[in-house]
C-alpha cells in the first residue's frame, strides 16, 4: 500500500501545550470512503489530534499528509480549501444569525471564489437533507434545539464540500433518538462518498458505524484495528463499553 493511497495520513505527530506533551507520536491514516473512529478517555488527545489536522496547533514533530501532500505550514483556511472540514465539539453555530446564514458561511471560501450558483444549489440540497432546517431556515440559530443545532453544524460543514469530514463529539448532550439519527446521517454521508473521521464519546455507537478505529490513551495510539475486532477486544470492552471484569 503506497502513501498516496491514503486520503489522510498522520505520521508520529507530536503536539505540545507549553511544556506538556499532549500528543507523543500519533500515527493514523484514513482511506478514501472510510469511516474511522477515534476513541479514548477525556484528555487522551482526541480533540488535540483533530486541531492539529486542521492547522490550529503547530506540530513539534512528525507530519500530516492529505492526498499525499504535506500540510506543514498551511493556514487553517488553506486546509479547508484542500477539502478538510471539522464540526467542532459543542456545535459552535453562529447563534445570532439565521439558519441560512450559518449554512452559507460554511461555504465561505466557495462564495469568495465566486461559486454563487453552486452554493445556492448545495444550500437547497442541505435543506432537503435536513428538512427540519428548511422549516426553520429564517430562525436565529441560537433558538434551535440541541439536535437541530447539531444538524446545522453538520450542514454548515458539508457546505464546504469536504473530502474529509471530521466530527468531534457530534452526539454529545443529545437524546438517544436524536443521537442515533445524527449517526445515521453520518453513515449516509459515507454512502455518498465522504470520508469521515469520528470522535465520539459513545464508543459502542461510533464503532458500530465505523470501519476501523484507533484507541488513544495519554497522547498515544494504544490499539487499532477493524471495528468489530475492537468491539471484541477485552480492554476496549472494560475501558469504554462499561463491562465488568466478570462479564468479559
Amino acid at each position: 500500500m503506497t502513501a498516496a493511497h491514503f486520503l489522510l495520513r498522520l505520521q508520529s505527530i507530536r503536539v505540545c501545550y507549553d511544556h506538556l506533551e499532549a500528543l507523543k507520536g500519533v500515527s493514523l491514516h484514513l482511506e478514501a470512503g472510510e469511516i474511522v473512529a477515534l476513541v479514548g478517555a477525556n484528555g487522551a488527545g482526541k480533540t488535540t489530534t483533530l486541531a492539529a489536522i486542521c492547522g490550529l496547533l503547530p506540530l513539534r514533530g512528525g507530519e500530516i499528509q492529505f492526498q499525499g501532500r504535506s500540510l506543514a505550514g498551511l493556514r487553517p483556511d488553506q486546509i479547508v480549501q484542500l477539502g478538510i472540514t471539522q464540526v467542532p465539539e459543542g456545535r459552535m453555530i453562529f447563534a445570532e444569525m439565521p439558519v441560512v446564514d450559518n449554512l452559507r458561511l460554511g461555504a465561505y471560501l466557495r462564495l469568495r471564489a465566486g461559486q454563487r450558483r453552486a452554493v445556492a444549489e448545495d444550500l437547497e440540497r442541505m435543506l432537503d437533507l435536513f428538512p427540519i432546517l428548511r422549516e426553520r431556515k429564517h430562525v436565529l440559530a441560537g433558538n434551535l434545539s440541541g439536535g437541530e443545532q447539531q444538524m446545522l453544524a453538520l450542514g454548515r460543514a458539508l457546505m464546504a464540500r469536504p473530502r474529509l469530514l471530521i466530527l468531534d463529539e457530534p452526539t454529545i448532550g443529545l437524546a438517544p433518538r436524536l443521537a442515533s439519527q445524527i449517526l445515521h446521517t453520518v453513515a449516509e454521508l459515507r454512502e455518498q462518498g465522504t470520508t469521515i473521521l469520528l470522535v465520539e464519546q459513545n464508543v459502542l455507537a461510533s464503532l458500530q458505524i465505523a470501519d476501523r478505529g484507533y484507541v488513544l490513551e495519554t497522547g498515544r495510539v494504544v490499539l487499532q484495528g477493524l471495528s468489530e475486532e475492537l468491539l471484541r477486544n477485552r480492554d476496549v470492552q472494560r475501558a469504554y463499553l462499561g463491562k465488568d471484569y466478570e462479564e468479559v
Binding site: 486542521c54 490550529l56 493556514r75 487553517p76 483556511d77 479547508v80 480549501q81 472540514t85 471539522q86 467542532p88 459552535m92 453555530i93 453562529f94 447563534a95 445570532e96 444569525m97 446564514d101 452559507r104 458561511l105 460554511g106 465561505y108 471560501l109 462564495l111 469568495r112 454548515r156 460543514a157 464546504a160
Partner: peptide
Amino acid sequence: SLTGRAMTACAARPLAACLAGIR
C-alpha cells in the same frame, strides 16, 4: 455582505469561523 457576515461570525465564534475557512 459576505465579508460583514464573516466578521460577525469571527466576533461570535472565532474557532468555528476559522474552521469554516474564514481568516
